[in-house]
Design a binder for these strands. Structure first.
Length: 385
DNA sequence: TGGGGTTAT
DNA sequence: ATAACCC
């Protein structure tokens, strides 16, 4: 962990508005009175060059060398040695090699180990408080309000004295690309511009929801709760590559699906929706992706737990239907990305307590001669009765 | 610009 | 299904 910031967000105490040159982020110290009912204690844990750190743990020989993590022709992140030598995030491999010929590159297209390590970090933080919100693979927000309040009570009963907690308000959200453009069109380019801009006009321009939120943010006020992330809402695997035939698409879909099935198997829950996403080759149009989704047929869902090859063929069939729904395979086409996503994840046991279904679970291991479903009694707890 | 994720509409 | 946002 490179850095942990203790901040008190959501407080309107203290003078605000100091700006860092060159952009929206700012920091400002402030003192929060102990026991102040409106203040919260939120720790933002932001891991720097996370993928590179995972790689250095996997292979300690990489430590001390300039290291970059490569995805396709991009260096998506790099360690500090590489940064010192001029390598930047999302730099072209060519440019990076030119800047730093000794740069060691490892392929980071398979996110499995990064994902696993990411959840280990989140789980560690959850030991302090269950209120942990993930942001990407390398950031977590932990709401420590309750823990800190308990400790303060402890301290005060041990040795009564005037206690204060100090922290700072920091930039949490970076106003996004589209919104930045719209704000610029209104002549808003700094935090102070946003603070002093007419609320009414801003609401008309951006809609009441976005307008009120970003204007509050401009004063350092962020009341949004830390929402525990829990297990993921979706699993997806994607690969950017050139694809101009149905056969290529099918092969890639099989590859992506095989990985996804492994992941879903480990998770234990079952996806009820499947989605196929494509990116078409087109000179510009910065964000062009199209998708088609459909429910996963229930007979496939049932088989999802254990057998993998049983489900491959019918799932690929479903995905190829989605594919042909988007792409006219009778005409020439050129795709640059395929992605498969499982979502609408449901726990195995969705039956309500107190109903018959709650005590019966579909059996995968028992063969029923009639070919219909068979059931096994679940383990039950005394408090259920 | 990769290979992921989320929520709102 | 898409659009916007985050890393």
């Amino acid at each position: 962990m490179e850095r942990a910031e203790a901040g008190a967000a959501g407080s309107s105490l203290g003078a605000l508005g100091s700006e860092e040159p060159g952009g929206l982020p700012w920091f400002h110290d402030q003192v929060v009175p102990a026991g102040s009912s409106s203040s919260r204690v939120i720790v933002h844990v932001d891991l720097d060059c996370f993928y590179a750190q995972v790689e250095m743990i996997s292979n300690p020989e990489l430590k001390g060398k300039p290291l970059g993590v490569q995805q396709k022709y991009l260096v998506v992140t790099c360690n500090y040695e590489a940064r010192k030598l001029g390598v930047k995030k999302l730099m072209n491999v060519r440019d990076a090699k030119e800047k730093c010929p000794q740069l060691v590159l490892v392929n980071g297209e398979d996110l499995t180990r990064y994902r696993e390590m990411s959840y280990k970090v989140t789980e560690l933080l959850e030991e302090f408080s269950p209120i942990v919100e993930r942001l990407g693979f390398d950031e977590n927000f932990v709401d420590l309000t309750e823990m800190v309040e308990k400790r303060l009570e402890q301290l005060q009963s041990d040795e009564p004295s005037a206690l204060t907690v100090s922290g700072h308000v920091y930039d949490n959200q970076r106003i996004g690309y589209k919104t930045t453009k719209r704000l610029e069109a209104l002549g808003i380019s700094s935090v102070r511009d946003l603070q002093t801009f007419s609320s009414k006009i801003l609401e008309k321009e951006l809609g009441i929801s976005v307008a009120q939120r970003i204007q509050k943010l401009s004063f350092g006020e962020d009341n949004s709760p830390v929402t525990p992330s829990g297990p993921p809402q979706s699993f997806s695997e994607e690969d950017s590559f050139k694809c101009s035939s149905e056969v290529e698409a099918k092969n890639k879909i099989e590859e992506l699906l095989a990985s996804l099935l492994n992941r879903v198997c480990q998770d234990g829950r079952k996806p009820h929706t499947i989605r196929l996403i494509i990116r078409r080759y087109s000179s510009e149009k910065h964000y062009n992706r199209e998708s088609r989704q459909c429910p996963i047929p229930s007979h496939i869902i049932q088989k999802l737990g254990i057998g993998n090859y049983d489900v491959m063929t019918p799932m690929v069939d479903v995905l190829m239907k989605l594919f042909r729904n988007m792409v006219n395979v009778k005409m020439p086409f050129h795709l640059t990305l395929l992605s498969v996503c499982f979502c609408n994840l449901k726990a195995l046991n969705t039956a309500k307590k107190g109903t018959i279904d709650y005590y019966l679970t579909p059996s995968l291991s028992t063969t029923s001669r009639s070919g219909k479903h068979s059931f096994k009694m679940k383990d039950t707890h005394m408090e259920d009765f």
